[in-house]
Amino acid sequence: MPYVNIQITREGATPGQKAELIAGVTKLLVDVLGKNPATTVVVIDEVDTDNWGIGGLPVLDYRAAQAAKEEKP
């Protein structure tokens, strides 16, 4: 019984997008590992951006820094 935990930032993923993630991950496990979709569990956790960090920075600060780098010629 595969268990997959997807963590995303809480930024407005729609129910339809979440359903696509669940279906896509389930299909991947069926196609690659031959797992039974009836016993495949997929959980999506949404994390507030205040609780998500990348490269030692809160995610919003990290994104701002990356955007600033891209703007420079």
Rank of each mutant, 00 (worst) to 15 (best):
R63W: 08
K27A: 14
P37T: 06
G53Y: 12
K35A: 05
I8G: 01
A68D: 04
R63N: 06
Q17I: 09
Q66I: 12
M1I: 09
A13N: 08
T9E: 02
V43Y: 09
D50M: 15
V4G: 00
K27I: 03
V41R: 14
V41K: 11
K18W: 06
R10I: 01
G56M: 15
I8C: 04
G12R: 14
V59D: 02
P2Q: 12
E11F: 12
Q66C: 06
L21R: 00
K69S: 07
L60K: 12
T26G: 02
N5A: 10
P37L: 13
E20I: 04
K18H: 07
T14C: 14
I8H: 00
Q7W: 03
A23N: 11
R10D: 07
P73T: 07
I8T: 01
I22G: 01
P58Q: 11
G24V: 03
L21H: 03
P58S: 06
K18A: 03
T39Q: 06
I8V: 13
V47Y: 08
V43L: 13
E11G: 09
T49L: 09
I6H: 00
I44N: 01
D31L: 15
A13G: 02
P2R: 05
I6V: 13
K35E: 02
E20Q: 09
Y62K: 04
N51I: 05
Q7C: 08
N36I: 08
T9N: 03
V4K: 01
L21S: 02
G55L: 10
E46Y: 08
D45S: 11
P2N: 09
V43E: 03
K35T: 01
I54Y: 11
G53A: 15
I8F: 02
A65E: 10
G34V: 04
K69R: 15
M1C: 10
R63C: 06
I6A: 05
D48Q: 14
M1W: 11
T9W: 05
L21Y: 07
V43W: 05
N36V: 06
V25A: 08
G16I: 09
L28H: 08
L29P: 00
V25Y: 02
G56L: 15
L21I: 13
N51A: 12
L21E: 00
L21V: 05
L60F: 04
G56C: 14
V47T: 06
E20A: 13
V25G: 01
E46H: 08
T40D: 07
L60Y: 02
K69D: 04
V43T: 12
T14A: 13
V59A: 10
I8P: 00
K35G: 02
R63F: 08
V59C: 05
L21T: 01
